[in-house]
């Protein structure tokens, strides 16, 4: 019995605890991201944003959550019930799964697997399923059109993201996320955003498209598609979509941080900066990228669909492909590749 407990019981409990330590703050972060979005965009547009519920509106997300919880779940009569219910779950689960390999600090990672970056890429490429399933199962033309747009868009931009990831992992020489971060140590001028500056820009634009954010939020274009794939959803299923989408935004910001902004590393190896723990740096950098997400949303008008496709296939893809060749060439020439 003791053996069983020590062999399986205890590790299992530790594992669950670890998962909770990652997931709970994440969900809180998602809640406050929605508040931050409304406040920041409000500020940019010279409005106030929600400021009534609690001090500075800090209780607003909880009020929203309670509201969504108590609403009625409506399943359209023509819908394919199982797929309809499964879709938001898929979206939500996938957005949490990816966090398993995210390094928050030196050694602070749930699963330090060797192919971490591949795992992240694989999971993020699956995010599309929730959307397609929702669009198809809703049995509504707006939802379906939104899902199709979203699918084509995510597949297109994934290609560019894949190539950019290849340039980074060529430079770092590893598929392990912690190793990628450590390869950038030594101050912010050693982070990969500098040598790969064009790719950094393209990557940021691509993750906007990958998360269906403005200015690439055509799948949810409220003016044309009345909110796209989630038009038929209400209550908890809708909340799951919402959570999944924002968790994905944070995930992609985290990925940007790891690939280009030195992960948990301080911007310079100066005494007091190194005293601040890694997870704090990580959180700060993620917050910065998220701020850029919101900034873009407040600034740019929406792309037209053909422009979006053109940008993905005719600009980002060739550029990132050329950059892979260039990077590999430079690495081979400088002898830093084995």
């Amino acid at each position: 019995m003791v053996e069983l407990w020590q062999g399986y019981g205890l590790p299992a409990i530790i594992l669950v605890a670890q998962i909770l330590v990652v997931v709970v703050p994440l969900l809180v972060a998602v809640a406050y991201l929605t508040l931050a979005e409304r406040r920041i965009i409000g500020a940019m547009q010279l409005r106030k944003g929600p400021n009534v519920v609690g001090a500075f509106g800090l209780l607003q997300p909880w009020a929203d959550a309670v509201k969504l919880l108590f609403k009625e779940t409506v399943i359209p009569s023509g819908a394919n019930q199982i797929v309809f219910i499964a879709a938001p779950m898929v979206t939500f689960t996938l957005s949490l799964m990816a966090w398993a390999v995210m390094p928050f600090g030196d050694g602070l990672v749930l699963a330090d697997i060797n192919v971490g970056i591949m795992y992240l890429f694989a999971i993020s490429s699956l995010g599309i399923y929730g959307i397609i399933m929702a669009g198809w199962a809703s049995n509504s033309k707006y939802a379906f059109l939104g899902a199709l747009r979203s699918g084509a868009q995510m597949v297109s931009y994934e290609v560019a993201i894949g190539f950019i990831i290849i340039t980074v992992l060529l430079t770092a020489g590893s598929l392990n996320l912690s190793d990628i971060v450590l390869a950038q140590s030594g101050g912010f001028w050693n982070w990969f955003w500098l040598p790969h500056l064009p790719m950094f820009v393209i990557f940021f634009a691509s993750i906007l498209a990958e998360t269906n954010r403005s200015p690439f939020d055509l799948p949810e274009a409220e003016a044309e598609l009345v909110a796209g794939y989630n038009v038929e959803y209400s209550s908890m299923p809708f909340a799951l979509f919402f959570l999944g989408e924002y968790a994905n935004m944070i995930l992609m910001s985290g990925l940007t941080t790891v690939l280009f902004l030195g992960g948990w590393l301080p911007p310079a190896e100066i005494g007091f900066l190194t005293l601040i723990p890694g997870p704090v740096w990580f959180a700060l950098k993620v917050a910065f990228v998220l701020f850029c997400f919101l900034w873009v949303r407040a600034t740019f008008p929406r792309y037209r669909y053909d422009q979006l496709m053109r940008l993905g296939w005719k600009v980002f893809l060739p550029l990132s492909l050329a950059w892979v060749v260039l990077t590999a060439g430079v690495l081979v020439y400088s002898g830093s590749l084995g």
Binding site: V115, M118, S125, I128, G151
Partner: peptide
């Protein structure tokens, strides 16, 4: 692991979509 991830990326993430 590498094959596993490639299977997911290529078949699930792209082909099946």
């Amino acid at each position: 692991e590498f094959l596993a991830m490639i299977l997911v990326v290529v078949y699930v993430g792209a082909v099946a979509v």
